[in-house]
């Protein structure tokens, strides 16, 4: 008689795994990768490859030689961080900037807290913000490298819509005048792949495709993303109604910059987002509000990275005090 297995119930498992989830995130990012390849050419792919490889190897080295534990790079979480960080850089960024960002993202923001599941701040965003502060020139150089697939004629000017507006407003122009100067600032350009900006934010449609995929695969729930977007729309709507010449309108705010990639891929990171539904909504509202405030009143043209990092720090509090609805309790 062979020996039987004995264990407490349940005896079957749903076959979900961290690896499958991370793989789904990578699949959801692939439309944006394809678009950026078309738009920015090899330099985009170079950044993505360097990012993924660097993050995975940094995690491997730290786990194997510093923490002396079994490396868990197979779960693909480091690869996701690398790809996300690459998608958050300007296409013209040199590879070594990506390398530094990866070391900071994985080494500082993730592994020094104890690795997957223990970090407080989103590693990719910490990497990006570190680079933004350390290499401001490189990180705001939106010039567009050559691409094999696209002739340079219809390329965007190279500046992001947000920075165009920030500069225009600070030089005393009204929104109408800025728009007249820059014909590329149309919604159609933003929806498809014609906005200037970092590698991953060129096409809203590609990002939304990824969002739909994540929802269908039940990787994420829509609460965080939607509450960010709705908050941005409402807050910027109120402001632009008050003074349409100084404050940009809701559609513009949602379609430009990192709002879509941030709200779909960065804010929804499991580890650094709240666990309860109500907590998720509070977190999303906070991100949306801070984003709009930084855009309107801050010195940076874009604020979602900071907004997400700020709200990341509230997540432990939200988890402690915002509890799911219990069964049988009013």
């Amino acid at each position: 008689m062979r020996k039987l297995l004995v264990s407490p119930a349940p005896h079957i498992h749903g076959n979900e795994s961290t690896r499958k989830i991370m793989r789904d995130v990578l699949i959801a990012l692939s439309p944006s990768l394809v678009v950026s390849l078309y738009f920015f050419g090899v330099s985009a792919i170079e950044l993505v490859l360097v990012g993924a490889l660097a993050c995975v190897s940094v995690e491997y080295v730290i786990q194997k030689y510093l923490m002396k534990v079994k490396p868990t790079i197979n779960d693909l979480s480091a690869a996701v961080t690398g790809v996300l960080l690459a998608l958050n850089l300007p296409p013209s960024a040199p590879w070594w900037v990506m390398l530094i960002g990866s070391v900071v993202a994985i080494g500082v923001a993730k592994m020094s807290f104890g690795g997957l599941g223990h970090n407080i701040f989103n590693p990719a965003l910490v990497g990006r913000v570190f680079l933004l502060i350390s290499f401001p020139a490189i990180m705001t150089d939106w010039s567009i490298p050559d691409s094999w697939f696209r002739d340079g004629v219809d390329a965007a000017s190279g500046a992001t819509p947000l920075s165009l507006i920030k500069e225009g407003l600070s030089s005393g122009m009204t929104l109408e005048q800025i728009q007249a100067q820059n014909p590329n600032l149309s919604y159609m350009h933003m929806l498809f792949f014609k906005t200037g900006g970092s590698v991953g934010e060129v096409s809203a449609i590609a990002l939304i495709l990824g969002f739909i995929y994540l929802l269908v695969r039940k990787v994420i729930r829509p609460h965080i993303t939607l509450s960010i977007l709705v908050t941005i729309a409402v807050v910027s709507g109120i402001f632009s109604l008050c003074d349409p010449q100084q404050f940009t309108d809701p559609a513009f705010n949602i379609l430009t910059g990192g709002v879509l990639i941030g709200s779909i891929f960065m804010a929804t990171d499991y580890v650094t987002s709240p666990m309860s539904t109500r907590g998720m909504v509070i977190y999303g509202v906070g991100i949306g509000f801070i984003t709009v405030m930084i855009r309107y009143f801050g010195s940076y043209p874009e604020g979602i990275s900071f907004a997400i990092l700020i709200m990341n720090s509230f997540v432990p509090l939200l988890n402690k005090y915002v509890k799911p609805k219990r069964f049988g309790r009013r």
Binding site: K3, L4, L5, V6, S7, P8
Partner: peptide
């Protein structure tokens, strides 16, 4: 006589 496949804890084993 059998293989335990649950969490390594005497309390869990003995209650099972």
């Amino acid at each position: 006589t059998n293989i335990y496949n649950g969490s390594p804890s005497c309390r869990i084993i003995s209650s099972l």
